[in-house]
Each structure stands twice: as structure tokens, then as C-alpha cells.
Computed example of a mutant assay.
Amino acid sequence: MSPENKPQQMKPLTAANKLGIYLPAAPEEFQAASISRTELDALRKEPPQWLVDLQENGPFPKDVIARKLGVSIAGLARAEITGALTESEIDKLLHEQPEWLVRERRTQDEVRAEAARVKAKDEARRAATNRPQKQR
């Protein structure tokens, strides 16, 4: 006989990260309990209203804020954005385009362009290495 399989449990912070929500804004019962993969899948499949509201309006964790603003998490830190922001606060920043946001978005664009350049160079090098040698 094999031992009974116990469902894998995750901490509330891990589940919140997987759902893209800011844990302190979640209901107390979510914050206090371990969540199984089955429960997480159920929350994704049929989210309760509190989860829908958090995913649409926030407050959001730093990784979601950074993605919505088009900057890095380090860029948020340089701008001294350390707390969670709501959708309306993010929209306000996008509308106002403060100097730090313009600078960080430009930096992020440069980083992405450099990453694409390096990837293309590596792919070209691999393609050249994998070509059959011509016989003389």
C-alpha cells in the first residue's frame, strides 16, 4: 500500500502572487490559510467577487504595477514607489507622465532592445554553427 497523497499546499503570499493580487488587501480568511493547488485552480476558474475586484482595481503588488507602467521593479524603487497602487493611481501616473516615468520607460525600452539584439546575435551564431560544412 502506498501512503495517501496529500494535496500540495502553498502559503497565502505564494497564492496571492500567482493570482496577481496584493496579499494585505485580500480577506483575512485568505491571508490566514494555506491554499492547495486545487483551491487555487478553483479561484482562477470561478473567482469570488473580492478577487475580481482586486484583480481589476487593485491595490496591486509591485510586479503588476511595474508591468502596467512599462517599467522595472527597480525603476519603481528608484522613483520611491514602495507601496501598492490602485488602478486609478496607475491611470493617473500614465496620464500625467511624470519625468521619472518617462525616464524609466525609456530605460526599459533600451534594456528590451539590447536583450533582443543579444538574442538575435546568439541565434545567428547558433545557426552558423549548425550549418553543414561545404566540402572542397
Rank of each mutant, 00 (worst) to 15 (best):
G20Q: 11
G20I: 06
G20L: 14
Y22K: 10
L23A: 04
L23T: 03
P24L: 06
P24F: 00
A25T: 00
A25F: 01
A25H: 07
P27C: 02
P27A: 05
E29F: 14
F30L: 01
F30W: 06
Q31E: 01
A32I: 07
A32C: 13
A32P: 05
A33Y: 00
A33M: 03
A33T: 04
A33E: 06
A33W: 00
I35G: 02
I35W: 13
I35S: 02
R37A: 12
R37V: 15
T38Q: 12
T38D: 13
D41N: 15
A42T: 07
R44M: 15
E46Q: 10
P48T: 11
P48W: 05
P48L: 09
Q49W: 10
W50Y: 13
W50D: 03
L51E: 06
L51H: 10
V52E: 10
V52H: 02
Q55I: 06
Q55W: 09
Q55N: 03
G58F: 05
G58C: 11
P61Q: 07
P61N: 08
K62Y: 03
K62Q: 14
D63A: 11
A66T: 00
R67N: 12
K68W: 08
G70I: 09
G70F: 07
V71E: 01
V71N: 00
S72N: 05
S72V: 01
I73D: 03
I73Q: 14
A74Y: 08
G75L: 01
L76N: 01
L76H: 06
A77M: 15
A79E: 00
A79P: 07
E80M: 14
E80F: 09
I81S: 04
I81G: 02
I81C: 13
T82D: 13
T82L: 14
G83T: 05
A84K: 04
A84I: 01
L85E: 01
T86G: 10
E87V: 09
E87H: 12
E87S: 15
S88E: 13
I90R: 04
I90W: 05
I90N: 02
D91Q: 15
K92Y: 09
K92W: 03
L93Y: 08
L93W: 01
L94I: 10
H95E: 12
H95K: 14
E96C: 08
E96T: 10
E96S: 14
E96I: 06
Q97V: 09
Q97L: 14
P98T: 05
E99A: 09
E99D: 12
L101Y: 07
R103S: 07
E104R: 07
R105S: 10
R105D: 07
R105Y: 02
R105F: 02
R106H: 15
R106A: 15
T107Y: 15
Q108L: 03
